[in-house]
Amino acid sequence: MLRERVAELVSKASGGDLAAADILAADCSLPALGLTSIAYLRLIDLLETEFDCDVDLDGGHLNTLDGLVEHIAGQRK
């Protein structure tokens, strides 16, 4: 569920340019899918609001959907 929800938020942050289904199916990084800097910033705000967490900008977890999911799951423990 968390993975699907994060994918929806990535899609929302991209202004709908990226479809959640494509994000879930992708085997490449989010920037490779076309996620831009400003979309990343929107995404971080969305994640922090929705999951009441602090997204750490250091570390490679920002690059991929699974990295983000793992990072958020770790924060919620």
Binding site: S29, P31, T36, L62, N63
Partner: peptide
């Protein structure tokens, strides 16, 4: 490079 390293072209 952006795609390879998981960063944006802006970066």
């Amino acid at each position: 490079l952006a795609a390879r390293h998981g960063v944006t072209t802006s970066s």
